[in-house]
Design a protein around this nucleic acid. Structure first.
Length: 810
RNA sequence: GCCGGGAUGGCGGAAUAGGCAGACGCGCGGGACUUAAAAUCCCGUUCUAGAAAUAGAGUGAGGGUUCGAUUCCCUCUCCCGGCACCA
């Protein structure tokens, strides 16, 4: 019998029914079930449609959620909208419509699209970061941070477009120019709200040990935090009373130092200017202006030629007593160390390039391999590794590690420096001069200074404005709404002005996983018992682009909330994995300009949700980037149609299964279960195909067929539900339990193993799995097929790997 | 540049506590069905030589460890992502 597979007939029907029944609503405190919190990164509802990337990640994770429910876990699989942000605001400016409206439309589109894939999200917990009921608590967290001294204001450089009179995001600066108007962008210091994430640097580093993140994720977090031991050493500037505090992580190389470099924007440069000759002063100031225009990336890149200015000043290395020239160069950043570094060209590639350009001496003080003390005269020879120190007076003969300790002791003893732990991590710039974000809930009072809004006044809602363009002064559009800005000081009742900066997009996404546990609570960020029950997130699935910043920011907020007793766990996420991206058919990122974008709506319409889901899983490994292929999805369509027809026709001719068939069904269940739980989605689909290829003509029992439908349910939820109903079962297949699998039962008694002679496969033997090495030796030797290869020599060695392979060395 | 990831047939990929390289799918070639096409089904499909049996080569490049390396170690090349105001 052939059965037409027509998903249009039933997919929408089941989606509606599942939604109406709130089928996937997770119950807090479900008795007798283990909880499992599966979190996917919530989407930014931008532009016109969800991406293929969202489609793939959510389809894969939905399969996990469905399987875990069938394995009797109480699964929390929520979704929401990361709704504030720059792209929507820019679009609002362009079309002259309120971002609120645009966002609402985008969310409606995304919701419909997610729905049309049959994803089993718990829609009763949907959240939206731009909803005042949500951002009330984002603002509340900010007030708590302020109260605990973790929010402060500081001068920070921003990208400034002098033509548009607006601060711009890095994203909007292309080749140093503002993408909208093409004007060269400058650095400009403005007073910004900052969050003291550095206070948590050590905890953020150490507590990674409490998690099961993928190792690559942990490494990236650690590298970003960048805990390092620095040695700060005071050098006197010759002919003056000034001192500079240089810093290095390699004090073992001090005797190889030949110059000192200061970052051009360093405040000490202003102090030193009075000692410079007029010609040099002019050059220094020109250089300072130039480097303002460069991006940080350009400054530190080794690809670009080093530049710098000789100040004509000298200092004395207080360890070696040697006189060193002082340069100003922008490959040094104020944010690294003390912003003043010692140049050791023999043992640092960047220092080497700089020394070559300015003809500075190069002195080797660390031996290479086998005591190599050869002169360093090319970049390739620069020796950045560890070794034995020489030509270094009191450090001679020490290992570089020991030498560092010794210098540390020396500078402390002599009172000329200190050993300091520093982090690459910098404090979080929390202000945006933008409209579409959470207003920062403080007022500025002439008498009382900066005053936080009282908690009762939250949420501080974003007022409606006429224009979303920043003001002429570069302040946020909010600054133009005088009736909103002018307010009373909560402390003294006098006139005060509201803060007009808003929060960055990162704010709302730093705690959304907490809100899912209790999304409608209006008295608290979340109920303590509910958070206790659901936290931590068991598995947080997301992209590589969020593994540094977002992950750090949300861990920081979580740790802070833990410290003030709001949340029950030290860490928010137990496990973090990284998915790959969906690229276009041409291997490029999907983008409008390349015309390689595939719209999920169109393919769902054309193939149906189950085919799309199957294809999303089959395209390639979870963690790898995958290429869209219209040809391959046709293959999936072919398979799903065949598979659907097979299940229905097998039901019509059901009878007794052979033991082989029954075993195969259980083996498949086991394979699918392990595949899904270990994110091997592509081979899980292969397993279904292999099963079909081998068994679709067999006779199955009623019980075995029911199992097959149940096994298919997490992967193809619609067609499984349809078949379940068509074969006379009660709603719903998704409420059935996953088959019990006794792994002992799945073992094969006989295996076919390859026989290698000198590493080449020369044949195969069918043997009992428990065969001993002696027995197999006898078997191989008695087999004629192998004798021609064995005649020529004596058997030197026979290796038998039980159940896998025999290798004979002759 | 720094940090993270990656490279396997014509294509997407499979196989790593070191054990048959190329599962599964696409594409392609051949055949069946059809007046014909589409759809469907069957057979073949890493490369080289050979009618075939078979032989040799082969997992980005080079080296090493091992009875045995896609898997482990060293050196290198290229590609993707992140680099703090895109999210």
């Amino acid at each position: 019998m052939s059965v037409e597979y027509n998903p249009k007939e039933f997919e929408a029907k089941w989606q509606e029914r599942w939604f109406k029944d709130l089928f996937y609503e997770s119950k807090d405190f479900a008795k007798g079930k283990e909880k499992y919190y599966l979190l996917v990164e919530f989407p930014y509802p931008s532009g016109d449609s969800m991406h293929m990337g969202h489609t793939r990640n959510y389809c894969m994770m939905d399969t996990v959620a469905r399987l875990r429910r069938m394995k009797d876990q109480n699964v929390l699989f929520p979704i929401g909208w990361d709704a504030f942000g720059l792209p929507t605001e820019n679009y609002a400016i362009k079309v002259g419509r309120p971002p609120q409206e645009i966002t609402k439309e985008n969310i409606d589109t995304f919701r419909r699209q997610l729905h049309s894939l049959g994803l089993s999200f718990d829609w009763s917990r949907e959240i939206d970061t731009s909803d005042p009921k949500y951002y009330k608590w984002t603002q509340w967290i900010f007030l708590k941070l302020l109260e605990k001294g973790l929010a402060y204001k500081a001068e920070q450089p921003i990208n400034w477009c002098p033509k548009c009179k607006v601060g711009c995001a890095n994203e909007e600066v292309i080749d140093g120019r503002h993408e909208r108007c093409g004007t060269l962008v400058e650095k400009r210091n403005i007073n910004q709200w900052m969050l003291k994430i550095t206070e948590y640097a050590d905890k953020l580093d150490k507590d990674l040990d409490l998690t099961d993140y993928w190792e690559s994720v942990k490494t990236r977090q650690r590298e970003w935090i960048g805990k390092k031991t620095w040695y700060d050493i005071e050098y006197k500037i010759e002919g003056t009373d000034e001192k500079i505090l240089v810093s290095t992580t390699r004090p073992d190389t001090q005797f190889g130092s030949t110059f000192v470099v200061i970052a051009p924007e360093h405040e000490i440069v202003e102090k030193l200017k009075k000692y410079m000759s007029p010609e040099i002063l002019e050059e220094v100031e020109r250089y300072q202006e130039e480097s303002k225009k460069k991006s940080e990336l350009d400054r530190i890149s080794q690809l670009k030629e080093k530049s710098g200015v000789n100040t004509g000043l000298f200092c004395k290395n207080s360890i070696t007593n040697k006189t060193l020239p002082i340069y100003i160069a922008d490959f040094v950043l104020t944010t690294v160390g003390t912003g003043m570094v010692v140049g050791v060209p023999a043992h640092d590639k960047r220092d080497f390039e700089f020394a070559q350009k300015y003809k500075l001496p190069i002195i080797r003080v660390i031996e290479g391999e086998d005591g190599n003390r050869e002169e360093i005269n090319s970049v390739e020879k620069v020796c950045e590794g560890e070794g034995t120190v020489f030509n270094s007076e009191f450090l001679d003969g020490l290992s570089t590690q020991d030498a560092r300790v010794k210098v540390g002791e020396y500078i402390k003893e002599k009172g000329i420096g200190d050993v300091v732990v520093r982090y690459h991590l910098r404090d979080w710039v929390f202000s945006r001069q933008r409209y579409w974000g959470e207003p920062i809930p403080v007022v500025h009072c002439d008498k009382c200074g900066t005053v936080p809004l009282p908690e009762e006044e939250l949420p501080l809602e974003l007022p409606k404005v006429e224009s979303y363009e920043p003001t002429d002064t570069g302040e946020s559009p909010l600054a133009n709404i005088t009736q909103w800005v002018n307010t009373k000081c909560p402390k003294c009742g006098g006139p005060a002005k509201r803060e007009t900066d808003t929060m960055p997009n990162w704010a709302g996404s730093s705690w959304y996983f907490l809100r899912y546990t209790d999304p409608k609570n209006s008295d608290k960020l979340g109920d303590a018992k509910k958070m206790e029950y659901w936290l931590p997130v068991d598995h947080y699935e997301g992209g590589a682009e969020h593994v540094t910043l977002h992950l750090l920011y949300s861990r920081f907020w979580h740790k802070f909330l833990y410290d003030i007793g709001v949340v029950p766990t030290k860490e928010p996420y137990k496990k973090r994995t990284i998915h790959g991206n969906v690229l276009g058919e041409d291997g490029q990122k999907m983008s409008k300009s390349l015309g390689n974008v595939i719209n999920p709506d169109e393919i769902i319409e054309k193939y149906g949700a189950d085919v799309v889901r199957g294809y999303m899983m089959f395209m390639g490994p979870y963690e790898g980037d995958v290429l869209w292929s219209t040809e391959t999805i046709n293959g999936l369509k072919r398979f799903v149609s065949k598979y659907y027809g097979f299940l229905l026709s097998a039901w019509e001719r059901k009878d007794k299964s052979s033991p082989k068939v029954t075993k195969a069904v259980l083996k498949l269940a086991n394979k699918v279960e392990e595949g899904i739980l270990n994110f091997k989605f592509n081979t899980t689909i292969s397993a279904l195909m292999e099963f079909y290829n081998e068994f679709h003509k067999e006779i199955f029992s009623k019980e075995d067929l029911e199992k097959l439908v149940i096994i298919s349910a997490p992967i193809f939820p619609h067609l499984s539900e349809e078949i379940w109903e068509k074969t006379g079962h009660d709603y719903s297949v998704h409420m059935q339990s996953w088959p019990q699998i006794d792994k002992e039962h799945l073992k094969e008694e006989e295996v076919e193993i390859p026989v290698q002679i000198n590493g080449k496969v020369r044949g195969r033997l069918k043997v009992n799995v428990d065969i001993s090495e002696d027995e197999i030796r006898e078997k191989v030797l008695s087999e004629k097929a192998f004798s021609e290869y064995l005649d020529s020599g004596n058997i030197k060695r026979l290796i038998y790997v039980p159940g896998r392979i025999v290798n004979i060395v002759v």
